[in-house]
Design a binder for these strands. Structure first.
Lengths: 214, 214
DNA sequence: ACGGCTTTGTACGAACCGGTTAATTTCATT
DNA sequence: AATGAAATTAACCGGTTCGTACAAAGCCGT
């Protein structure tokens, strides 16, 4: 990508690099300004390439947004894959998963913002992507395994449902990032110091485990 | 407002009505399309009055958005005021408050969307409004009273904090509306039938009460 | 009936912005 | 080294959209 800056003439072809560069810049811009708020010219300006290349590779603004959406999910789910829970007892595994989700969301505010934006659009662009659906289908398998083991060990209630646990864990972890702006403007930022965040995480675990246990 | 439709001549002055009409239409448009996505011309067209009046009363687009934001909070907090909890024992009061919040958010998706949009904008417009801050400061007093009574009765932990309880209740109730689109596209809409929503609400109460009790 | 506030209507401009046209350069293949 | 597809550059276009200008007139408290 730096090849581009090396003089008026003498550029190198680098399709993959150009695409990647555009996607990265676009993700930041869409996350910052939303779909209609983001400006193609602004994205182009922050790129190592030109506006024309955006249209060359992504067709139009919505096409670009769609790819950004996919990339955002891909990156985040890739991070989640690294989690190894099978060797842990069910309760520990559940705690680990909840703690990881909480921290992971905290570390990826741009992903949270993209998902917020996509929800504003009623999931219209996510609907078009089979890739994302398949990516996420796997995301809940960890929870299914934990619940199965928990039930078999007689620890969890018979009617715990992985999907619902995922719902609660996501809610508390997601909201913790997504609504920080309005909440802190109204109630102060007391809840967002490092130690208070640790406490919130601890309570998240307590609530979720409490819901799963008999 | 219907006065306006009753013929070319013979209109009545109704500043309050005109303002109200504009605000209602604008709220729907901003909730549907976001700040940059909403179109002033579109808002004007759906109004009983004209674009000229929007600028007459609200200055510019951002001014209009700011008033819509205030109005959204005002309406929702007004609904919450009606809740009477002082006569209930602490645990019942907490359950009632949580159930009410869950249902209330479910009933007011446009408010949820406005808050989502405002969070996308980092709360920049909410920051300008002292009104909203004072509106919401009162929203947590109910919870403070409940916690105080719960502690005095020896039912609640000494370190339960009203603000954190509010955080958890809000998270689960808010996310339940805000992220429905993406979640249901990925995992199906199993969780959103009437009876499953009742169950989620029940579990919300279980988790929050469980966190407050000793 | 005076005068300020409110309302109507229309037309317009100027910036903005998504998207295109067209020409040029790289590079793998032969 | 010829060739053609892929990649890249640069300038440009036309519709959209916020906001305003201008002109006129009706309502209503005092």
């Amino acid at each position: 990508m730096d090849d581009k800056t090396s003089g008026r003439n003498g550029w190198k072809q680098d399709p993959a690099g150009v695409r990647k560069n555009i996607l990265a810049v676009a993700m930041a811009e869409f996350a910052a300004n939303g779909l209609s708020g983001a400006r193609i010219d602004e994205i182009a300006a922050k790129t190592n390439t030109s506006k024309r290349m955006i249209y060359y590779y992504f067709g139009d603004k919505e096409g670009l947004y769609g790819r950004v959406l996919e990339e955002a999910y891909r990156e985040v789910r890739a991070g989640e894959q690294e989690l190894e829970l099978d060797h842990l007892p069910p309760v520990d595994a559940l705690r680990h998963l909840a703690e990881f989700t909480f921290d992971h969301h905290n570390r990826n505010p741009d992903f949270i913002r993209i998902v917020m934006i996509e929800n504003i659009h009623h999931g219209a662009y996510l609907e078009k992507s089979d890739l994302i659906r398949s990516l996420n289908a796997g995301a809940i398998q960890k929870l299914e395994a934990i619940c199965r083991r928990g039930r078999e060990a007689g620890l969890f209630r018979d009617d715990v449902e992985p999907l619902e646990l995922h719902w609660h864990i996501s809610a508390l972890s997601f909201f913790n990032v997504s609504n920080r702006a309005t909440f802190s403007h109204i109630f102060g930022d007391r809840l967002f110091s490092a130690d208070r965040q640790q406490l919130l995480k601890k309570h998240l675990v307590k609530m979720v485990v409490g819901l799963a246990l008999i």
